[in-house]
Design a protein around this nucleic acid. Structure first.
Lengths: 373, 373
DNA sequence: CCGGGTTAATGAATCGTTTCAACAACGCGC
DNA sequence: GCGCGTTGTTGAAACGATTCATTAACCCGG
C-alpha cells in the first residue's frame, strides 16, 4: 500500500470500464445503475482506494455538508455538552460539525465566521460574543443560515434557541431568599452583556416579588467567566471584611472558583455563605460542597439549534423561529437551609439537607434512601 | 443588503475591469499588482461583498488549510486544553482546526477520519481509541499527515507526541507510598489500552523500587473514563467492606467522581483514603478535597503536535518524530501526609498540609504564605 | 417487424479558483 | 532608434465531482 496520489473518479471509471457519470451515480444514486455495473465500480473504488474529493463535490453543488458551531468557551462543559447535542443532530442528518472557539473575543469570532463563510458551510450556530448581532446578520445577509444559541434574537430575522435568563436569575435569587439570605451579591461579567444583565434583572425581580428592595442584589463584575475569575472574586469579597450571606454566580465555573477560595479561607458554605451557580455542569455536583445550580438543557439546546439550521438550509420558504427553554433549579448542599443546621459536621450529615431535584443522572439519588424533609 | 447570491471572482473582475487572474493576484500575491489596480479591485470586492470560495481554492490547490483533531472526549478538560494548544499553533500558521469527538468509539473515530480524508485536510491529529493504529496508518498511506497525540508510535512510520505514562504511574504510586499508603488500588479502563497498562506498569515499578511486591497494586477496571465511572467505582469499593488506603485514578474525571461518593459516604480523604488523579485539569484544584494529580502539559502537547503536522505537510522530505514529554506530580490535599494529621477539622487547616508543586497559575500559592513543611 | 416506452450508460458542460505561459508597455543604455 | 530587462496584466487550462440532455439497448404489444 504505497503512498499513492489520491485516485480520482476518472481513474475509477477507467478501471471499471464505465464513464465518470456512472461512477458518480454509483456514489450518489446507486439504485439507477445496474447491479453488475455497480459491483464492478465498487470493486474498482476499493482497489484504487478512492476517496471522494469533498471540495470538488462542494464546488459543484454549491454548499458543504458541514455546519459551524462557534462557542464562547470550549473549556466550559456547558458548551461541550451543547456541542454534543449539535453533533448528534448533525450526524443524523449527514452533516459534519466544525467546532470553533471564540473565547469571548470579538476578533476571533469574526475570523471564525469569515472562515466558515468561505467554506460555504450549510449553516452556522453561534453564541454571540456581544449583544451586537451585526456579524450574525451580515453572515445571514450573505446567504448563510444562522442560528443564535443562548441568545434570543430580539427581532424575527434570525433563528435563535435560548434559555430564559430572566427566569433563571429569578429562581436562583428566590431560592436564596427562601433559605433566609438577605445580603446578596451576584458575580457576573459586564452588565452590558445580555446574559448577565438578564440574570441580574431576574434576581432583582425575585427581590421585588418578595417585597424587598431590588437594589439589595449587589453586582460584582469580573472580567472573564472562568474558574480563575471566581477565585479572584472570592478574594475581593474576603478582603472587604464583611461577606454577603448569599452569592449568585453567573456560571458554575465562577461558582466553583469562588467556592474553593471561600472554603480555603475557612468560610463555611452554606452556613456563612450560600452559593448558587448556573448551568449545572457535571462538576457542580462533585464540588467541595456540591453546588446548587440553575440547570440549562445544554444538549437539548444544541440539538434543537442544529435541527433548526438543517431545516432552514433545506426548506424552501423558511420562517425564522425563536425557541426559548425554561431553566430549572437543582438544589444541592451549597445552599442548605440555614436554620436547623449545626456549624460544620463532616461527611454524610450533608445528606439530610439535600433535596435533589436532579442529580448526576439520578444514579446517586436513586441509591440513597431519600430522608424525609 | 439583500440576500444576494455569492459574487464570484469573475464578477469582481468585471466590476474592476481587470482579468480574473489579476483579482486572484490581488488576493494571493498583492505585491505583484500595481497599487492603482489593486485599489480598484479591492473596492470592487468590498462593494460586491465577495467572499472567496474555499472549495474552489482547495480543489485547485489540492489541499485544505484545515487540520483535523480527533479526541477521545471533548467533555474532558484535558482534551479541550489540548485543543486550545492546537488551535493556537494552527492559527499562527493560517490553518483552521476541525475538532472531532470520537467518544471512545471506534466507529465514530473511523467516520471522522473518513470525513477528514474527504476534505483533503492538511493533516490529522488523533488520540487513537485503541492501540490498533491501523486506521492511522491507513490514513497516512493515503497521503494524509498523521500525528498521534498521547500515544507514542512504537515504530517510526508515524509522528507522535506523548507524555511518558509509565513515569506518570510511577511518580503517582511513589507518592502514595511516601505518604505511608500500602493497600493500593488503581482505577482505570481496560488494561488492553496502552495508557492504562503503562500507568499501571509504572505503578508496579514504583512498588518494586520501594522493595514491595508489584502485585500490591490492585487493578479495578471501569468501562468508561468519566465522572460517572468514578462514582460507580467508589460504590463498588464501599460495598466491599474494606477500603484501600490509597487510590490512583487513571484520570481526574474518575478521581473526582470517586472523591465525591467517598466523601458523601463519610470516608475521610486523605485520612482514610488518599486519592491521586491524572491530567491536573482545572477542576482538580477546586474539588471537594483539592486533588493531587499527575500533570500533563496538555496545551504544549497540542501545540507541539500541530507544529509537527504543519511541518510535515509543508516540508519536502520529512523525518517522522516521536516526542515524549515527562509528567510531573502536583501535590494537593487529597494525599495529605497521614502522620501528624488529626481526624477531620474543617477549613484552612488543610493549608498546612499543602506542598504546592504547582497550583492554578500559582495565584493562590503566591498569596498564601507558605508554611514550613 | 415496427414504434413507443423503459432502463442504463454516456460525455460534455459546469462550479470558482489558481497558475502560468504569453504578451504589452515602459524605461534605459548604447 | 533598437534591443533588452522589468513590471503588470491577460486568458486559458487545469482541479474533480455532479448533472443532464442524449444515446443505446432492450422489451413488448400490435
Amino acid at each position: 500500500m504505497g503512498q499513492q496520489a489520491a485516485a480520482s473518479i476518472r481513474q475509477v471509471a477507467r478501471a471499471a470500464r464505465v464513464s465518470v457519470g456512472t461512477v458518480s451515480n454509483v456514489l450518489n444514486r446507486p439504485s439507477v445503475v445496474a447491479p453488475a455495473t455497480r459491483r464492478r465500480v465498487l470493486a474498482a473504488i476499493d482497489e484504487l482506494g478512492f476517496v471522494r474529493n469533498e471540495s470538488a463535490r462542494q464546488l459543484r453543488q454549491g454548499t458543504a455538508r458541514t455546519i459551524g458551531l462557534v462557542v464562547l468557551d470550549v473549556g466550559n462543559p456547558f458548551f461541550t455538552d451543547l456541542a454534543k447535542g449539535v453533533e448528534a443532530a448533525a450526524t443524523e442528518a449527514g452533516h459534519a460539525v466544525m467546532l470553533c472557539n471564540s473565547d469571548g473575543s470579538r476578533d476571533r469570532e469574526s475570523r471564525h465566521l469569515e472562515l466558515l463563510a468561505q467554506q460555504q458551510v450549510h449553516g452556522v450556530l453561534m453564541s454571540p460574543v456581544e449583544d451586537d448581532l451585526s456579524s450574525a446578520r451580515e453572515l445571514a445577509a450573505r446567504g448563510v443560515s444562522v442560528v443564535l444559541v443562548g441568545h434570543p434574537a430580539e427581532s424575527d430575522d434570525l433563528c435563535s434557541v435560548a434559555v430564559d435568563d430572566r427566569v433563571g436569575g429569578e429562581i436562583a435569587v428566590t431560592h436564596l431568599l427562601a433559605t433566609g439570605r438577605r445580603r446578596l451579591t451576584m458575580i457576573a461579567g459586564s452588565p452590558a452583556t445580555r446574559q448577565c444583565a438578564e440574570r441580574h434583572a431576574g434576581g432583582q425581580q425575585a427581590l421585588r416579588n418578595a417585597g424587598h428592595d431590588p437594589g439589595g442584589l449587589e453586582f460584582l463584575e469580573v472580567p472573564t467567566l472562568d474558574v480563575a475569575a471566581g477565585q479572584r472574586a472570592a478574594e475581593q469579597l474576603l478582603a472587604r471584611g464583611s461577606l454577603p450571606d448569599g452569592v449568585f454566580c453567573v456560571n458554575d465555573l465562577v461558582a466553583l472558583g469562588l467556592l474553593q477560595v471561600l472554603l480555603r479561607a475557612g468560610v463555611s458554605v452554606p452556613d456563612d455563605v450560600a452559593v448558587v451557580g448556573y448551568d449545572d455542569i457535571d462538576f457542580a455536583a462533585a464540588a467541595a460542597v456540591p453546588l446548587t445550580s440553575v440547570r440549562q438543557p445544554a444538549t437539548l439546546l444544541g440539538r434543537t439549534a442544529a435541527d433548526l439550521v438543517i431545516a432552514e438550509g433545506a426548506g424552501s420558504r423558511h420562517q425564522h423561529q425563536q425557541v426559548v427553554f425554561t431553566p430549572e433549579l437543582v438544589v444541592r448542599e451549597s445552599t442548605g437551609h440555614r436554620e436547623g443546621r449545626s456549624r460544620a459536621p463532616d461527611g454524610p450529615a450533608w445528606g439530610a439537607l439535600l433535596r435533589p431535584v436532579h442529580d448526576l443522572g439520578g444514579r446517586l439519588a436513586a441509591q440513597e434512601p431519600e430522608p424525609a424533609g
